[in-house]
Amino acid sequence: MRQLSKNQTPADLTLTIPTPIMKPKVSVLIPTYNYARFLDEAIQSVLAQTYTDFELLIMDNCSTDNTEAVVRPYLQDPRVTYYKNEKNLGLVGNWNKCLDHARGEYIKFLCADDKFHPHLLEKFVAVMEAYPSVMLVTSYNTYFGDRNRERVRPFTGLVNGQEARKHMISEGGKNWIGEPSAVMFRSSGLAVGHFNPKLVALIDKEYWLRLLTMGDCYVIPESLSYFRWHDSAQTAKVRNKMYERTFEVYHYITSIKKFNQEKRINDIPNLDQMIRMRASRVAALVYRTLPFIFRPDYRQVFLRAWQIGKQEHVMFHPLERLVRGEASLKGNKK
C-alpha cells in the first residue's frame, strides 16, 4: 500500500505512514479504479460539505489513468489522504481496504463516479447523534447521467432493524436501502466483518443485512446523494454477465444463513426453503449448458452448477419441474 504526499511525484511513491489528524467523527471513503474523469467531481462534493469533521480517504486500486494527478491538488487539505494499492485487489478487496484505514466513528462510502449533496453529512450525522439505536442511515437519492430520476424508499424515518431485514430478504426483496454512496453506518458495525468477497452484485445488500442485526435503520426522505448511471459502471457490467446473477443470488442467501447460524439468529424461518429454490435454479444451468460443454466458458458454468446442485441435492429438480410444466430449461418462470 502506497501513500502519496502532496510533495511527491508518482515516481517517488513509497510506503509511508500518514501523519494522523485528530480522530474524525466521519470517515468518507472513496474507492476508485480508472475513474479519474469522475473523481474530481466526487472529491469536490465531499469538501463542499457543510459538516466538516471528517477525513477523506481515497483508495486507488492500482489505476492506470491520471488518478494521481487529479488527487494531487487536494492533498493540501490535511483531511485528505490518498493510497494506491501495489496491485489490483478487485472491487470488494478495495472496499475492504478502505474499511481497514477508516478511523471515524461513522463510515460513509462514496463511489468515485457519484457525488454528495452539500448537506448530506450534516443530516446523516444528526440522525446518528439523535438515535443511538440506529446502525445505518440512508436517504432518497437521484440518478443522473444516462438516466435521470429520483429513487425513493418504501419507508421513511425510523425502521426496526429486524423488520428491515425481513423485508429485504423476502422473495423478490430489493436493496431499497441503497448503494454505498447512499448509506452511512457506525464503525462499531465492523464487528459483523467486512464485505463478502464471494459476492459481486449483491455485496452491499448482504452487508446491510448483517449490519441490521446490530441496530435499526433510519431513512431521510430527501435526495442527498447522486448516483451516476453510465455504461462503464461496474454494477452495470455485472448485470450483463451471462448466468452470474443465478449463482450470485444463491451465494447471497447461503451467506445470510451462515451468518445467522454463527450469530444464533433465527429471524428468517424459511431460509432453507429459499436456498433449495435458488440451488434448483443453479442446477438448471447444468442442462442449459450441457450442449455447449466443449466451450471453456460454458464448461466452467456447467461445473459450478453441477457442484452446487449435487451439494444441495437438487440436481433433478429442474427436470421434475419441466415434467410438471412449471419451468423451461431456457429460463425459469416466476
Results as ranks from 00 to 15, higher is better:
Q3L: 13
Q8K: 14
T9C: 08
D12C: 05
T14W: 11
K23G: 06
K23A: 12
V26G: 06
V26H: 04
I30V: 15
P31H: 02
P31W: 07
Y33C: 03
N34S: 05
L39P: 02
L39S: 01
D40N: 05
I43C: 01
Q44K: 11
L47R: 06
A48W: 03
Q49C: 05
F54Q: 13
M59A: 03
D60A: 04
T67L: 09
V70F: 03
V71Q: 01
P73D: 00
L75S: 11
R79C: 11
R79T: 13
N88P: 01
L91P: 03
G93F: 03
N96A: 04
D100K: 07
Y106K: 10
F109N: 13
F109W: 13
A112I: 10
D113I: 05
K115A: 08
H119Y: 06
E122L: 12
K123G: 05
F124S: 10
V125K: 07
A126D: 12
M128S: 06
A130K: 15
S133M: 12
V137Y: 09
Y140T: 06
N141Y: 00
T142L: 00
F144P: 06
G145T: 10
R149L: 15
R149E: 08
R149K: 15
E150M: 09
E150Q: 15
R153P: 01
G157R: 02
G157T: 02
L158Q: 10
L158C: 09
N160I: 01
N160D: 15
G161V: 03
K166N: 07
M168K: 02
I169S: 03
S170A: 15
G172F: 02
G172W: 01
G172A: 09
K174L: 14
K174D: 08
W176K: 00
V183S: 06
R186M: 10
G189Y: 14
G189I: 13
L190P: 07
F195S: 10
N196F: 09
K198I: 05
V200W: 11
V200G: 12
V200Q: 14
E206Q: 14
E206R: 11
G215Q: 10
D216S: 13
D216M: 14
C217W: 08
C217G: 13
Y218G: 14
V219D: 07
P221W: 08
E222I: 04
L224H: 08
R228G: 02
S232V: 14
S232T: 15
A233F: 05
K237H: 11
M242K: 14
R245N: 11
I253K: 09
T254M: 07
I256G: 00
I256K: 00
F259D: 06
Q261V: 13
K263W: 15
N266Y: 00
L271E: 00
D272R: 01
Q273S: 04
M274T: 00
R276M: 09
V282F: 00
R288P: 04
I293V: 15
I293W: 05
F294L: 06
V301S: 07
R304A: 12
A305E: 10
Q311W: 05
E312A: 08
V314R: 04
P318E: 04
P318S: 07
E320I: 12
E326K: 10
K334R: 10
